[in-house]
Design a protein around this nucleic acid. Structure first.
Lengths: 65, 65
DNA sequence: ACAAAATGTCAAGTCTATTTGACATTATTT
DNA sequence: AAATAATGTCAAATAGACTTGACATTTTGT
């Protein structure tokens, strides 16, 4: 799995540490960290929730050519 | 989980039965069926693979306002 | 109307996402 | 420089995605 730098950048725009994003999404901090590190393959619902909290779409955060 | 009619429509455009899509994606037919029925919450990698096979993006198949 | 293909669904098993708790390291603030 | 916050990572446990196999029902083709 590839690292996801886009989530990290979107977090930075909002000044959200991993913990804040995790709380808003309703998931553990380790889960957010693991996704950013590319350690695993999150569910689409989790991805959608992350997108909503960060004000982005799936294509913006999770799509790559 | 909501039913996903968009995958069904994209399949129809290409005349792919569930089995064909499943084979091309490398997953079981039941998994495709369950996703279309909204029976569960697939992983983002599986969603991406479905998108690639159907020639759509994540936003087109999995995003809803 | 018949046959064949496609779909919906169930149950039992396996694999892995996600959790909690904990600790070490790196960045930020004072 | 010291204190605090943020990040990376590990291990053990749990929940749920996904598999295979099987069968019933619906749809499509002849």
């Amino acid at each position: 799995m590839a690292r996801n730098i886009k989530i990290k950048m979107a977090r930075a725009e909002l000044n959200y540490p991993q913990k804040t994003l995790a709380d808003k999404v309703g998931v553990s901090r380790q889960t957010i960290n693991a996704i950013e590190q590319g350690d695993y393959n999150p569910s689409i619902n989790l991805c959608k929730n992350i997108c909503k909290v960060l004000g982005k779409t799936l294509d913006e955060l999770f799509w790559e050519e």
